[in-house]
Design a protein around this nucleic acid. Sequence first.
DNA 1: GACCAGGCACATC
DNA 2: GATGTGCATGGT
Length: 219
Amino acid sequence: MRRHLQKIYTRLFAKYGPQSWWPAQSRFEVIIGAILTQNTNWTNVMKAIANLRRENLLTPLALKNISLKDLSERIKPAGYFNVKAKRLKNFVDFLFKEYNGRLDRMAEEPLEELRKKLLSVNGIGPETADSILLYALDQPVFVVDAYTKRILSRHHLIDKDAPYHEVQKNFTESLKADASLFNEYHALIVRVGKEFCKSKPLCDRCPLKTINSPIFQTA
DNA sequence: GACCAGGCACATC
DNA sequence: GATGTGCATGGT
């Protein structure tokens, strides 16, 4: 497993180079994006964030003060707008309740404790929590997403419905706990996934096709 | 007009 | 504990 995961990273980095994630202008914007992108194409999320930016709504205080209805109107392009407006509100309420609305205070929380607290917020699951920890707070936490599972399971490195934590463990046990490495690795997985995981003919041209993984040893 | 996208919570068995 | 379902827009 370790060798495969290291090889996949090397291969992806060689092909694509640094991705320099997260595409956002502030830590708070990273968190907003992490919630809005749940099961949603990033281009739709960008439209929603542009709407928020236009009205200077990308701050904890602004989102605290806007009504649920007004917020959902503005994030419509991101889809699931009623659910997501509530989730954004839930996070902001949490931020004010626990940290006086300040991300710098939240960032002082010990990592494990903070992760637990984030997961207790309704609408923040493991991937969103870990995205916040890694991409907003620069903590060495590996983010697992649908592409991660799809790619590893297609290479027969994990079961296709392996639980989140199991998949994550493979990475943390195989790699140095380095935030910038985890940052690039996840971004690269999304990059290659978007490009090559859409159909079987594409899959055959994927840069990961020739890694020395079980699926190609037995084929 | 299907099908999919950087999930998550909740109902039901 | 496993499985199913609702949530919704915009691009291919």
